[in-house]
Nucleic acid binder design. Structure first.
Lengths: 124, 124
DNA sequence: ACCGGTCTTTCACCGGGCGTTCACGACCGG
DNA sequence: CCGGTCGTGAACGCCCGGTGAAAGACCGGT
């Protein structure tokens, strides 16, 4: 029953998604997303922290069956990444799990070392 | 039907393995494992505390018969060790039993062992 | 109907991740 | 000293996913 059900707003660390309004706020600023982009982002955000297969994402955001060789999900993930990166530089929201799918989770950009320490400027 | 079954997660002291999602959480942080790596880790974790032969591990994770001289299991054990050590420094999950196979069991590494830090100063 | 713009789909290219295999060395028991 | 076992690094082909862009669908304004 978990189709692209709209209604309540989704909130993460830096994002607020209001599917029913077609509105996404990144750090207060509004993002201009198309219908598909919003559906896909909503589907991903509602499964935050979990790996979602392309087939499931397609079913959720396109309301159909993903055909073999269809790259639509990849293309829209790309567009979402571009817009989200532009809205929240230094943060990564959509992570790729090769062979499985994508995972939505707001994380600071540190792709090489997933668990690196935050030393920053603590050194005096 | 699947909904409840998807929570088929393996949990140990510091690891949470979700085979159906292709996701491994180490202390809350997500690990990026490949399909083979995850299958092998799952096979090992399901036999936690017991020594599993290479033949059995290969049968479980590769769905085939281990040929003579095939080092695949060793190579992937190595890769798992690297990633797990990076995610949980100071802990050893996969133990070698020479002549028999491998055993999965979360244990702290010897205290006398001094760790080399690999920060490499990726200053932003 | 025409037109211009946006959105969606599809295609093609390519770089990188992944799986496999090999080679070398350390270690150990016989 | 020799053979077996395992650790470890690396080469290599292949496939998956990243990416840019063209082509087509859709839509509102005029």
């Amino acid at each position: 029953m978990e189709t692209a059900r709209q209604g309540d707003a989704l909130r993460t660390a830096q994002l607020e998604i209001r599917p029913d309004e077609g509105l996404v706020l990144a750090d207060g600023r509004a993002l201009a997303l198309s219908v598909r982009e919003l559906h896909l982002l909503t589907a991903l955000a509602r499964r935050e922290g979990r790996v979602v297969s392309r087939a499931e994402l397609y079913a959720l955001a396109w309301q159909g069956v993903l055909r073999n060789g269809d790259r639509s999900v990849d293309v829209y993930v790309r567009r979402l990444r571009v817009k989200l990166e532009r809205a929240q530089p230094g943060w990564c929201f959509i992570h790729t799990h090769v062979g499985f799918g994508y995972r939505f989770a707001p994380e600071p950009t540190a792709p090489a070392r997933s668990h690196d320490f935050h030393i920053t400027a603590t050194a005096r």
